[in-house]
Design a protein around this nucleic acid. Sequence first.
DNA 1: TTGTATGCGTTATCAT
DNA 2: ATGATAACGCATACAA
Lengths: 367, 367
Amino acid sequence: MHSTLTIQDIARLAGVSKATVSRVLNHNPSVNALLRERVQHVIQEYDFVPSVTAIGLAGGRTRLIGVLAPPLTWPSVPEIMHGIAEYLECTDYEMVLYSIGFERNHSDVLDHILNMKMVAGLLAIFPGELSNHLAQRFQQGFPLVTIDDQSKPSALPWVGINTMTGAYEATRHLLELGHRRIAHILGPQHYYCAVERYQGYCQALQDAGIALNPNLLFQGTFTPASGRQCATMLFSRERQDWPTAIFVANDQMAYGVLEVAEQQGISVPEEIAVVGFDDNMLSAHLRPSLTTIQQPFSEMGRQAIEALIMSIDQNHSMEQGRLKQSTQSGSEHVREDPQTTNPLRIQVPTRLIVRASSGSPRTLPIG
Amino acid sequence: MHSTLTIQDIARLAGVSKATVSRVLNHNPSVNALLRERVQHVIQEYDFVPSVTAIGLAGGRTRLIGVLAPPLTWPSVPEIMHGIAEYLECTDYEMVLYSIGFERNHSDVLDHILNMKMVAGLLAIFPGELSNHLAQRFQQGFPLVTIDDQSKPSALPWVGINTMTGAYEATRHLLELGHRRIAHILGPQHYYCAVERYQGYCQALQDAGIALNPNLLFQGTFTPASGRQCATMLFSRERQDWPTAIFVANDQMAYGVLEVAEQQGISVPEEIAVVGFDDNMLSAHLRPSLTTIQQPFSEMGRQAIEALIMSIDQNHSMEQGRLKQSTQSGSEHVREDPQTTNPLRIQVPTRLIVRASSGSPRTLPIG
DNA sequence: TTGTATGCGTTATCAT
DNA sequence: ATGATAACGCATACAA
């Protein structure tokens, strides 16, 4: 409760010097076991925690990790954050959350964050068009990991899923239920993941020997509203032109489809089967519950933050080593370690979650 | 892009001293307009941002605000966070997120956070049993604001809703639809808000001249599973013992009720009307969509962070003043300003959102 | 109004 | 193995 103890006070109380206390705090092995015991006891007793600001200044090193995230009201962001937070609880790192809207210029925000030199590394969630800017910083040696929905290979450490495989699986599920006329509502094509989901769909059809039917493709924007639009268009056709199933590129749009179906009295999955992608938290609770491809968001967060912290620690060690043995080689500091030439890629597996909206070959009631 | 500029560099480049640059950065009025111009130009040109750690050390003041939050996967937490983040974007404060699970001892975590002396203030979301500990810290002068679901008056600055009024409104809505046998699924009674929701229900019945029927009360735990349990119990009764409506203490439990109704082929709202509390994001998208009491979570976050920042700034000014004029009065620093004797209370209004699950007077079942 | 000098709490580099 | 001491980057009291 003693409000403002410093390392100096602890040193005095333990009858040692500041330096020794510091060494104890940093688990420096070169300190006598007995002394360590004594010092640690004092630290515990007074509940002493060294000032992060001072550590930052002196060591040139912060225990803070920046997390650059889209608005938390986006469906899957909270789950990712949860994975991150859970992992961080077991470390002595803290998270500085930058939840950015989309009105301001991202690049400015990013520069500002990095120039403050407050965070030791950055975890960027769905960076979108910010990727290039991030890559640049990464090249300069700043620890960085991205969680991205677009698995287009990049120069950045990356955690994500195998989107195409997921989409393939979703489509194949419908094929296995006996469907042959399967529509697809696409996501916006400037998202690479939307392209990949479409490709997975195409591949599955092709492997089943079914020709792609352009009349069964609808262009959406990943929003429930666009799902409603596409569904409305589809259901206004002659009945014989309907597909028997739809693979929707994300759950949000699938919600729109289910909504329209409900309004028009079209029963799902009896008249039309629906499969989504993402497994947002809503999807299990909808009526009918939505069959979809589950992305392990929480796990992605965990993997990403773990990789980032390793990268930070390693980075730190390297700089320590370099300072010792190298004469000022000057010039811009550019990475040459394996990390850059072959950046991290972690692909976590997706899973098909079969629920009511896709029915079953025998159309059993929900169990 | 120049990686590591300091205030010293800027001073040299502008042909002034460090002190002047510092004054410019801190908007100190006592600096010549021309000089200010020159310095600011250099700052802009080099995109200089002073090191937060150094500022923290030197000024004893941080631009960081701690946010203590339950897991982000809790329904309403992301919305609150969104409000906070949005407000912070327009300030020069950053948020350090402590998303705590519920296995570890909260008090320890809190002490640790505060002892680090990293954050200038703390915003505690749904602190629960941590309140006492927080109050203690607040008494000692640490800037603190809570967003709480339990409006039991406390010694802490508080942002929340008028729970009882909301519950009253929900129940009255059902009464106005003509319902007379209205059940209530209670939340766990160690949450004060659960008690208040129950009280609002009772009050509304009483004002309508309807006696409380203990057979229509069910004890839940705020989880969808407990909603299912209660609903199962209820629907297993003789048909004539059913209520015609249920006021469920939160949306999550209402989801469980709707689920069971769907499974048992009981139509909502025709056979039984359902009203929830919270207006989580799911509620609008369920079939049937859920009538509920909307809590303006995002607004609550905004109000809370605004109050906290004001408190921090004011606190800082006070300390500045005190250091100038007072001789060391010594002893523990205890607040005596109005803030403590009469702590902040902001009550944001709730709103009844009428959706499908409560139906309309015409669809009122007979009996 | 501006520059100089000191201190913030810690790490790291020296000595010992 | 341990202790003194010099940075770290900035704010601020003080001198000019």
